[in-house]
């Protein structure tokens, strides 16, 4: 390595060192601690070292549990639907808003939920979804739609929570997509118009391909967040049949802090990590096939 290269490498190490020191304390220790716990039968009340070693039993038990498997399925459905549908809606709205009057005002409006805590969102939507005196059913009633038991009917419970999650998430996505939209050089559009392309065709063959890198960013970060969803289902979904609504994070939390099975909960947390990890690799692969570089 050249002298300049060495100097830059040294600077590189220097710049990442605060983060690395942080991670080696507040990340490595907890992860190792939990990994050990996941092989033990530990209730959290006795010291970890005196808990019995049970090998892979916690993992095996989870895979045999109906509720845990349902919670994995619910989480998969939730993540894929909220991220894909959320980005799709954001894309449409971003494009529509981009060419509209008052665009700044609309973007601000759509961004409001982003500054609102999940507890508030869950509480408010819980009121709105009420079957007999919620505003949503009242509004639907004006159009002759019969009342829906949003949060208690197993058919709609997860759907309701996904709607709320998408509602809460599109503001940031619209913003990020708009940023890329405005970076597409006007010449591209002009050229397409000369060729006589309609607006849908322009969107499909110019806008969308150019947005792919940003869509990858949104999918990757969105999924990492969505896989860990806890607050909204936990606040809103307790009265629906659990199998139709429980997510892995909720399951892990309840197992750890209500059932006092820290070992089993840690195992659940590691299974969740593996799912997120694999899902992210799949997403990166899919985009790579489409010609988009990943984040290596």
């Amino acid at each position: 390595m050249s002298k300049v290269g060495r100097k830059r490498a040294r600077a590189g190490y220097g710049f990442i060192s605060p983060s690395l020191i942080f991670y080696s304390i507040f990340f490595i220790f907890p992860v190792v601690f939990s990994l050990i716990a996941s092989f033990k039968r530990w209730n959290g009340l006795i010291p970890l070292f005196s808990a019995a070693w049970v090998g892979l039993e916690n993992y095996k038990w989870l895979f045999g549990s109906d509720l845990f498997v349902s919670s994995v399925i619910n989480t998969v459905v939730y993540s894929v639907v909220t991220v894909v549908v959320g980005i799709f809606i954001s894309l449409i709205l971003a494009v529509l808003i981009n060419g509209s009057k008052l665009s700044g005002f609309w973007r601000l409006l759509f961004f409001l939920p982003t500054v609102t805590p999940a507890v508030a969102i869950g509480t408010i939507w819980g009121y709105l979804y009420r079957a007999n005196n919620g505003l949503i059913n009242q509004i639907l009633g004006w159009f002759g739609i019969k009342p829906i038991r949003w949060l208690t009917d197993p058919k709609t419970a997860l759907l309701s929570i996904m709607i709320t999650a998408i509602w809460a998430g599109i503001g940031m996505q619209i913003l990020i997509i708009t940023a890329s939209l405005q970076n597409i050089p006007q010449d591209y559009y002009d050229a397409a118009k000369i060729d006589g392309a309609g607006s849908f065709r322009i969107f499909w063959s110019i806008t969308l391909p150019l947005l792919r890198p940003i869509l990858l960013f949104l999918t990757a970060t969105g999924m990492i967040g969505a896989w860990q969803v806890f607050d909204l289902p936990y606040i809103m979904g307790t009265n629906a049949p659990a199998k139709s609504i429980m997510t892995v994070s909720w399951y892990v939390y309840e197992t750890a802090f209500q059932s006092l099975r820290m070992g089993r909960a840690s195992a659940g947390a590691f299974i969740l990590f593996c799912i997120i990890f694999v899902a992210n690799i799949l997403v990166l692969r899919a985009f790579k096939k489409g010609g988009i570089e990943g984040y290596e």
């Binding site: 990340f27 992860v31 939990s34 994070s249």
Partner: peptide
């Protein structure tokens, strides 16, 4: 990618 709960106790 790690669920936040595992960090609570440690």
């Amino acid at each position: 990618m790690f669920p936040v709960f595992i960090f609570l106790i440690p």
